[in-house]
Amino acid sequence: MESLRRIAVPVAAIAAFLAVWEALVRINGWPNYVMASPSDLPAAYAQFWELFLVGAWQTLWRTVAGLALAVVFGLLLGMIMGFSRVMRDALYPLLVGFNAIPKATLVPVLALLFIGQHDFNTVMMAFLISFFPIAVSVGIGLSTLEPEYRDILRSLGASRFTIFRKIALPKTLPEFFGALKVSVTLAFIGTNLVEIVSPHGRGLGALFLSGQTNSNYPLMFAVLIALAVLGIALYYAVVALERTFAGWAERQAT
């Protein structure tokens, strides 16, 4: 019963959203080239389904690759900042400054640095845009570890690495996954940004661009919906990982 409700409610919400969208287009009598309606979309998917599959796959793997890089690099950076005060003081302003740069400005920079390396550039952008939350949350999680937690094992002569593995790392997992949920959406945006902005791009972003050039508005909207679906799938993949590895942090509803 409970599981039925958990599926039925979001599905109903999406159906309601589509109905309102359809109604708006019909009531206002908007033609296709102003605003496509949900009923236009199946035709677009049917016509371009191969392009959608290829594009979705390209967007997906480059996002995941960028995110994976962000996890590795963010964890490393977070550990360095979490364990060393000096490094924290040194790196923090750099990181904040870097994060403040609008990432769209990096597209031409990357494109010039690595000419023609479209896959590489896209992965790089997904990575650059998404590592910051991970680094910061892991750094803060580690540096705010209560000394007693360390002392339970340190008083037994355990090595720093053992303390990290058995206490510090698991204890920061909830913060890490909180950051990962932000990062996964950021990485996705980074990938799409490069796909849409750069000429001869790949992925769903490039499909969107070709829809625009050919004034195929139903296609453009179909891409947007596909992007939304992919984004939801990625987000809930992270949620599933969180349940598996940090499910203990969830408070029991009492």
Binding site: Y149, S155, P170
Partner: peptide, 18 residues
Amino acid sequence: SPRKTVGMAFQNPVLLEW
């Protein structure tokens, strides 16, 4: 230096929630 023959308990029980 720390030694394995010592046990410690604090005011905060510091149990690991996971």
